[in-house]
């Protein structure tokens, strides 16, 4: 799996569950690739921060 594919899957995972094989492939790639790991964390934080903004929880987005 290359970085382009991995980042696509990381994004898709925010919206729907991945199949088991895709999930494992993505995990393996993230283990090896710092850049994709950053990408994945950043888009997760994007989502979390929106949610904590809505719920008015100021502390939650500082956790990671």
């Amino acid at each position: 799996m290359n970085c382009q594919k991995a980042s696509e899957l990381a994004s898709r995972q925010q919206d729907q569950p991945l199949s088991l094989s895709k999930k494992i492939n993505l995990k393996l790639h993230l283990l090896m690739c710092e850049h994709c790991r950053n990408f994945s964390k950043n888009i997760e934080q994007l989502s979390d921060s929106m949610q904590s903004f809505l719920s008015g929880d100021d502390s939650k987005d500082q956790k990671k």
Binding site: C3, C36, N38, Q45
Partner: peptide, 20 residues
């Protein structure tokens, strides 16, 4: 997908940085 080269690896200037 301008962020990637032909092999599908991140271009140098597009490499994601940690946000913290």
């Amino acid at each position: 997908a301008e962020e990637f080269n032909a092999k599908g690896s991140w271009q140098q200037e597009a490499k994601p940085m940690p946000w913290q």
